[in-house]
Simulated scan of single mutants.
Amino acid sequence: MASGQNNNSNTLLVPQANAGLNQLKYEVAQELGIAIPQDGYQGNMTTKENGSIGGYITRHLVQIAEQQLAGK
């Protein structure tokens, strides 16, 4: 890949949501007892730790969407 190219397909549809998602990541990690480094770099964390955080966030977001669709 040529330098300067970004092949990241994980673009946010609502860029303003980035801060909220980042905050949610830290809250979930704290609930699960996982320490995210202060610099935010998760490259030294295990796949299991990162997967647990991502899975919990996904379940939480799906739950919120289901509640909104149900009119609650």
Rank of each mutant, 00 (worst) to 15 (best):
L32A: 13
N50L: 02
D39M: 05
Q42C: 07
Q67C: 13
L69R: 12
L61C: 10
K48A: 09
E66I: 12
V62E: 08
G55T: 01
N8E: 06
T11F: 03
G54Y: 04
V62Y: 14
L13S: 15
Y26N: 07
G55L: 00
G51L: 00
R59L: 01
Q38R: 11
N6C: 14
Q5L: 05
I57A: 11
G20R: 06
A35Y: 00
V62G: 04
L32V: 02
S52A: 13
I57N: 08
S3K: 12
K25E: 09
Q23G: 03
N7Y: 05
A2E: 01
G55A: 04
M1A: 09
D39I: 02
A65L: 15
S52Y: 09
P15A: 05
N8G: 11
A29V: 06
L61D: 09
A70E: 09
E31A: 11
A29K: 08
Q68S: 10
G20Y: 05
I64F: 03
L21C: 04
S3I: 08
L69E: 06
G33F: 00
Q68N: 15
N7S: 13
T46C: 07
Q42M: 12
D39L: 05
L13V: 09
E31F: 02
I34P: 10
N18T: 02
N8I: 03
I34D: 02
